[in-house]
Amino acid sequence: MTCENSSCQCGCSSNAFAELAPVMEKYANTPGSLIPILQKVQDIYGYISIDAINYISEKIGVKPAKIYGVATFYSQFRLKPIGKYLIMLCKGTACHVNGADKIEEAINEELNIRDGETTEDGLFTLNNMACLGCCSLAPVMMIRSGSEDETYGNLTKDSTKKVLNEIRNREA
């Protein structure tokens, strides 16, 4: 695994980010495109690795530290891989008032993960969100797998556990 470009220290193979080539081509000459590039990287790989940051840096001539700064500023970006199912638990005001903390408790009890953590089997990651915008269905969570989103509303501790168990049984 060596880079063709000798200035690159990342240790990646030159083809490691082949899927990104068209993205880079599209955005390379448009200034201010760092955020859309990072969004594409996350779409493709599920997260933004340090290798990816180095790769982008090399392609668009922005220092890795700056890319890291942008990637860590916004809540959308993740620097670690996530589980197959991403649980986005709404912690918006309406959900808070209607007991989102209880739902978080249920997820903790069932999966033994806290905000930002992934289960050992790599099946679930929990991310608390500021607001999913379905306030009338509070408390709400959205579970994303691949490009599929499923929203669950009017949750109780029991119904939350049931949803998680159904997914786990399906995957077993």
Partner: peptide
């Protein structure tokens, strides 16, 4: 729309 608890823009 970043305000938790508002969804009119959406």
């Amino acid at each position: 729309e970043g305000d938790p608890g508002a969804f009119m823009d959406r």
